[in-house]
């Protein structure tokens, strides 16, 4: 016999279910209850940097859009600073770095407005290319899925990014890279997430 470790076990995850919006985005569920819904404005009015929009679909193994998915984004500001007490440096007033993203229930299309993040420090003195961390929950997803959105106009930084480079299968790296476009004078990136299949998105165990 050996000594007993005193650690607790993490509470097991369960699916967010089809009605996740009631709890996390009640306006989308069809009713007003809170004075203020959380996660509606990621960057705030004072954020520096390029204003961008990111849009996409989450697509299941049959090729159908997942219409009841909810995504959360977590990102640094344009200077590469996360609004967190353990990070040195300040962000602009009103910059939350975090947002909730709901789909259109009819089409499954989602999108959010933010600013493009800057490079952030990596481990061991490395630098990570600009990216947005994404967490995806839905009915049928037993444990929330973590992935990252990188940007196709950051080819040089992406080529040196330690996380992208860690992905052994080079042909899968493109699944993390949003494609830049423009609509009505606004920068819009496209980022479709594939839950299964040939082009399955890279998901991380963080």
């Amino acid at each position: 016999m050996v000594q007993k470790l005193e650690y607790l076990k993490e509470t097991p995850s369960q699916t967010a279910g089809p009605y996740v919006h009631i709890g996390l985005a009640p306006g989308a569920a069809g009713f007003d209850i809170y004075e203020r819904e959380l996660g509606q404005d990621i960057a705030g009015p004072n954020a520096k940097g390029e204003r961008i929009r990111i849009e996409g679909l989450v697509i299941d193994g049959t090729g159908s859009p997942v219409k009841d998915v909810l995504l959360e984004a977590w990102q640094a500001n344009a200077d590469g600073i996360y609004p967190h007490p353990e990070v040195d440096g300040d962000v602009e007033e009103g910059f939350r770095g975090w947002g909730r993203v709901i789909t259109n229930f009819e089409t499954g299309e989602w999108g959010f407005d933010t600013v493009k993040p800057g490079c952030v420090p990596g481990r061991n003195g490395s630098t990570q290319a600009p990216h947005i961390n994404l967490w995806i929950v839905a009915r049928g997803i037993n444990v929330g899925l973590n992935t990252r959105i990188y940007f196709d106009d950051e080819a040089e930084a992406n080529a040196k990014d330690p996380i992208i480079n860690m992905i052994e299968w080079e042909n899968r790296r493109a699944t993390l890279i949003a494609k830049r476009g423009e609509r009505d004078g606004q920068v819009v990136y496209r980022f479709d997430v594939y839950l299964q299949g040939e082009s399955e998105t890279v998901f991380f165990d963080i």
């Binding site: 193994g61 977590w74 353990e86 770095g97 952030v120 420090p121 997803i141 860690m166 299964q196």
Partner: peptide, 23 residues
């Protein structure tokens, strides 16, 4: 879960400031 579950392995990522921080 059948059509919504990734089939490839999750890629293990050594945590960085992006994972250690949060809202």
């Amino acid at each position: 879960s059948v059509a919504r579950s990734p089939q490839k392995s999750l890629i293990s990522l050594d945590q960085t400031v992006s994972e250690i921080t949060g809202p």
